[in-house]
C-alpha cells in the first residue's frame, strides 16, 4: 500500500522538473563551490589533520537530508494541502498514516540518491575516501536524520499559512541553521555562543555525526550515540507537533 503510493509520488516528482532540479542542484552546487574554494586547505579533525573536502562531503550530505526531507517535503506538502490533494486523499480508504509515510518515503529515497551522488562525487573528484568500518554508523545516522527532518517538515507546514508563504517560512528556518550548524561554515570558525545556540537544534548534531563517519582517524565504528539521541529527540518533538497541528484542509 505504502510502496504503491511511493511509486506514484516518485513518478510525479520527476515530472516536475523545477522542483526536482532545485532539490538536487543546491547541495551539489555547494559541494562543488566549497571544494573549489576551500577544498585543499588542511583542517584539524579529531586525531590529526585532513583536507577540507573530508569535511564538506559529510556536511553536504547533511544539507542533502535537510533539503529533501525538510525543505522539499514541507513545501510540496503545503502545495498539496492548498491544492486540495490532502483533503481528497482523506476522503478515500487510504489510511492517512499510509499516505504520509509514502510522502516521507519519497523524500527519503530522494535524500539517499542525493547522498549517493555527493559521496561518489567526493570520492571521484575530490579523493575523499568512502567510509568502510563506519558505514553502518553513517547509514543509521542518515536514516534517523531523514526521519527527524521529515517529522519537522510536516510539523512546520502548520506554520505556513499558504503556498506563497512556504518558501520564505521554510527557508527562513533552514538557511540560518545551515550557516550556524557546522555545514557551510566550520564550527571552529564561529563564536562559541553561536555553536552553543546551534547545538540546541538537530542540524549540527546531524552534521557532526556524519563527519565522524568520514573522519579518516576514526578507529571505532563511528556511532555518535549522544548526537543520535538529540536528533531522535527532535524527531519525537516534530512528530508530536505534527500529530497535534498538521491539517489536511486547504487554508485560504
Amino acid at each position: 500500500m505504502v510502496l504503491r503510493q511511493i511509486r506514484y509520488e516518485w513518478v510525479a516528482f520527476w515530472r516536475n522538473p523545477a522542483a526536482a532540479f532545485f532539490t538536487f542542484v543546491f547541495p551539489l552546487l555547494f559541494l562543488v563551490i566549497f571544494n573549489m574554494v576551500f577544498g585543499n586547505a588542511e583542517i584539524s579533525v579529531p586525531g590529526g589533520t585532513a583536507r577540507a573536502s573530508t569535511f564538506y562531503v559529510p556536511a553536504i550530505a547533511a544539507m542533502s537530508i535537510v533539503n529533501a526531507c525538510f525543505t522539499s517535503l514541507a513545501m510540496s506538502v503545503t502545495i498539496s494541502r492548498d491544492a486540495g490533494v490532502l483533503k481528497r486523499v482523506r476522503g478515500t480508504p487510504l489510511p492517512p498514516w499510509a499516505y504520509l509515510t509514502a510522502r516521507i518515503g519519497l523524500v527519503t529515497l530522494v535524500a539517499l540518491l542525493l547522498i549517493t551522488i555527493v559521496v561518489s562525487l567526493g570520492a571521484l573528484a575530490y579523493g575523499v575516501s568512502v567510509p568502510t568500518h563506519t558505514m553502518p554508523a553513517f547509514i543509521l545516522t542518515v536514516l534517523v536524520s531523514a526521519a527527524t527532518c521529515s517529522a519537522l517538515g510536516l510539523a512546520v507546514t502548520a506554520l505556513v499559512p499558504n503556498t506563497d508563504a512556504a518558501p520564505p517560512v521554510v527557508n527562513g528556518i533552514a538557511l540560518p541553521l545551515l550557516f550556524i550548524s557546522d555545514i557551510f561554515v566550520r564550527a571552529e570558525r564561529v563564536p562559541p555562543w553561536v555553536n552553543r545556540l546551534a547545538d540546541v537544534f538537530p542540524l549540527s548534531h546531524i552534521s557532526e555525526a556524519l563527519q565522524t563517519a568520514f573522519n579518516p582517524f576514526e578507529v571505532g565504528s563511528g556511532f555518535e550515540w549522544t548526537h543520535l539521541a538529540v536528533i531522535a529527540a527532535w524527531g519525537v518533538v516534530g512528530m508530536l507537533l505534527a500529530l497535534r497541528f498538521f491539517t489536511w484542509e486547504p487554508r485560504q
Binding site: 504503491r4 503510493q5 506514484y8 513518478v11 510525479a12 516528482f13 515530472r15 516536475n16 498539496s80 491544492a83 486540495g84 490533494v85 490532502l86 483533503k87 481528497r88 486523499v89 476522503g91 478515500t92 480508504p93 487510504l94 486547504p250
Partner: peptide, 26 residues
C-alpha cells in the same frame, strides 16, 4: 466524493490518476 476543488496531482496522467485512486478501493 467530488469536492469543489480538484485535488489531483498535476504531474500524473489521467489514466495514472484514476488507477492510483482505484487502488485504494477493494
Amino acid at each position: 466524493i467530488v469536492l469543489q476543488s480538484t485535488g489531483i496531482d498535476r504531474y500524473l496522467t489521467v489514466g495514472e490518476a484514476v488507477d492510483m485512486f482505484r487502488g485504494y478501493y477493494p
